[in-house]
Amino acid sequence: MLRYIARKAVGWFLMIVVATNLTYFLANAFLKPASNYTALRPPRTPAEINHSLALYNLNPDKPIIDRWWHWISGIVTHFDWGQSPTGGSVNDQVAYRIFVSGQLVLASTILAIVIGVGLGVYTASRQYKAADRVWQGLSVLSFNTPSAVASLAVVLVAIALNQSLGSTLLPVAGAQSPDVAGFWAVLGSRATHAILPTISLTFISYAGYHLLQRSLLLDNINSDYVRTARSKGLTRKQAIYRHGLRTSIIPVATQVAFAMPALFTGAVITETVFAWHGMGEYFTKTISTNDVHGVVAVAAFGALMTAIGAILADLVIVALDPRIRVS
């Protein structure tokens, strides 16, 4: 089992390395770090700008291969992801942003899977009845709602709710209140701030699991082995959960890994709307400030999330599918 995971992890690690390096060259080709200095007063000469950029390994006059070697050896030897064009360390930024985003993405992934699969089973066992049609319609709507619309709609509803209650029950901006102190107070503040972003991310991602699980379960809800289970004396519910669901949930598990990039894109929008300082906000910030090293770190983070999702999906499949033997 451990060898299986290790082999998978090595494969994914190589893919992350390739994606990250390619992003490094693309980012160097398309971003112009010098533009951070052109607006300064008094104006700097190009030579001065290049001199400042050279401090952060961003000098455009130095050959790209040399710059790449400096960058990659920094990461390999002491895990230093470089500096922004104005000198801020990428590591410092990423270190706290990863937890902000990770909490958001993880919570909404788990919620989306539980709600999606649950709804899939519920509606598949009531095919073409009123409940099935209502949920189906809602899921088609949410599956096709752009994340910007979903997030802003959630904000609009929350504002209306807060105004009608006359108090700030659900805060719509930031990851926590700036003036709280103490462990429990901070935890409570973080939790209330996380409710709305998690709702909007879950809303756009649960429908994919629901629609997939429903159609997969319908494919084998009437198959022989489910009928055999029924004739052995299991209730309909037991037969569906223990036999029907077990086979049809496997493709859904694979789907989780491939849904990760879309979820990360959703997180970019959600964090922008709710003013969270996570990796998603870092994504927009680094591109608009021509921060080459920051952009590459964001790409590496995205690839890492996909890899973790894929390995977790593999583990779930191994646990569920008796045909797969790994040891």
Binding site: V18, A19, L26, F30, L31, I287, A299, G302, A303, T306
Partner: peptide, 18 residues
């Protein structure tokens, strides 16, 4: 498969903003 693992949204944003 190689293109699928690339961070496509990020690359699109990079080129688009350029």
């Amino acid at each position: 498969h190689f293109l699928l693992i690339l961070p496509s949204f990020l690359i699109i944003a990079l080129v688009g903003t350029h």
